[in-house]
Amino acid sequence: MNKSLFLFFLLSGLLFYAQNQRFTYEYKYKIDSTAQDKTETELMILDVTPKGSKFYSKDFYESDSLMKAAIGKQVKNGNTDFDFSGFKFKGKVRYSVEKTYPAYSINFFTTLGSDEYMVQDGRTQNWKILPEREKVGNFTAHKAVCNFAGRKWTAWFTTDLPIQDGPYKFHGLPGLIVKIEDASLTYTFELKGIKKLPNTYDWKSTKDKERYNPLITLNEVKYKKAFNDFRADPMKSERQMLAQGIIIEERDDSEKLIDPEKSRKEQEKKMKDRIKKENNPIELDLLK
C-alpha cells in the first residue's frame, strides 16, 4: 500500500473511531467434528468506540443483564436466598474479546469451570491481500488470507468502513472485516447489521466487573496449558473447594438434599461427555 493511500485510511479510520458503532455478525460454527450436519448459529456484537472494541454474544449479554437486574431487585427487597427458578441463560458463546486502540492489544475473556480468565493474546495476524473481490451484503469486499490459531482463514474486508477491526480476534486489514471463514467452512462470521450508538455510550471492560473470585490473567501459551488441564480434569476446582470444606447445598424438586458426592460424579460425567463433543474449537491449535 502506498503512503498516500495509507494516510487516507488512517485519517478515515480516525474519523470513524470518533463514532460509537455497533456491528452485528451472524456466527455459524460446528464445535463437534463428528457431527458435521449440526451447525450452531448465534448473533455476535462488535461494539466500536474511540478507545477500542468489544466482541460478545448478543443473547448471552442480554441474559447476563437480566440476571444482574434480578439479583439487584432481590437484594433491594432484602432477600438473601436468591430464587432463579425458571430463569434460563440464552447464548452458548460465553467468551468476549476486547481490543484496545490504536495498538490493537487483545484481551480474551473466558471461563473454565468456576475460574474466569483474561488471556492477553500477543500473536500477530500476517494477512496477504489478494486481487479478488466479492459482494458481501451491500459492500464490495476485498479478499485476504492468513493462518491463525491452527486454521487458514479467508477474510473479506471493505474500505467503505475504514476501520482495521473485525469479529473475534481478527484485525489489521485496511477496512472492516465483513465476512471471514476458515478453510474447512466450519467457522464463519458474516456482517448482518450496523447501528450508530449514542455518543455517550461507553462500554466497560470485563476485567473491571464485580466478581467473587479473582480474575486469572495469562498469556495465550499458559492459557493453552490451563485449557488442556481443564479438559483432562474438569472437576478439579470443585474438589479443591470440597477439600477446603466449602459445600454447596443442592436440593431436588421435593426440597430433599442431594448427596454432594453423587452430584459431583453426575456433573463430572456430563462435563466429560460435553468436552468430548467439543473437539473442534475455533482455535484448533489449542488441542495440539
Rank of each mutant, 00 (worst) to 15 (best):
S263H: 15
Y27M: 01
Y187M: 00
T140F: 01
G193Y: 14
F189V: 00
T124M: 04
I163E: 04
S33T: 13
K192T: 03
P174K: 00
K68P: 07
T217F: 03
R133G: 07
P50N: 04
F227Q: 00
K143P: 07
K224Y: 04
N2E: 09
G193S: 12
A232R: 14
S65V: 13
T80Y: 06
Q36Y: 03
V97R: 04
F55L: 00
F139T: 08
E190D: 04
F9I: 14
K30Y: 10
G166M: 01
L286A: 06
G175D: 06
K54W: 08
D160Q: 13
S12H: 12
L176Q: 08
S96N: 11
K38W: 13
G78D: 03
I71C: 06
Y101P: 09
Q164K: 11
E238R: 12
F230L: 03
T80I: 11
G13W: 10
K76T: 09
Y17I: 06
G150E: 00
K277F: 05
Q244S: 10
Y187E: 04
L176F: 12
K152C: 09
I282A: 00
I163G: 03
K3E: 08
V221I: 13
F108M: 01
D37P: 15
E134N: 10
L66S: 14
F139I: 07
K88V: 15
E249V: 13
P131C: 00
K58D: 06
K224H: 04
S63V: 11
K256Q: 14
R231W: 06
A141N: 03
R133N: 07
L176A: 04
G150V: 05
P50W: 03
K90L: 05
F23C: 02
D83K: 05
S184F: 09
S57Q: 02
T110N: 08
A35R: 15
K58N: 07
K270P: 06
F170R: 05
E42K: 05
K262H: 14
T140W: 07
T159E: 11
K38L: 10
M1K: 12
C146R: 09
K222W: 08
E268A: 04
T188A: 05
V97Y: 05
D229G: 08
F60W: 09
S85Y: 02
V75K: 13
A149N: 14
K288Q: 13
W153L: 01
Q19I: 05
R22T: 12
I45N: 04
G175E: 03
T154S: 01
L257N: 12
F89N: 10
F84G: 01
I129Y: 10
L284D: 03
N213L: 11
E250H: 15
W203T: 10
R94V: 09
K204M: 04
K3M: 06
E249L: 05
S114L: 12
K30W: 08
G172A: 04
D165I: 00
L43I: 07
T80D: 05
K51E: 11
N77G: 14
L284G: 08
K51S: 14
E26K: 15
V93R: 06
D273Q: 15
G245R: 07
D202M: 06
N77C: 06
T206Q: 12
S57K: 06
L14M: 10
K169D: 03
D252A: 03
R22A: 07
N228R: 12
Y201F: 15
R133D: 00
V178M: 01
Y168P: 10
K265S: 11
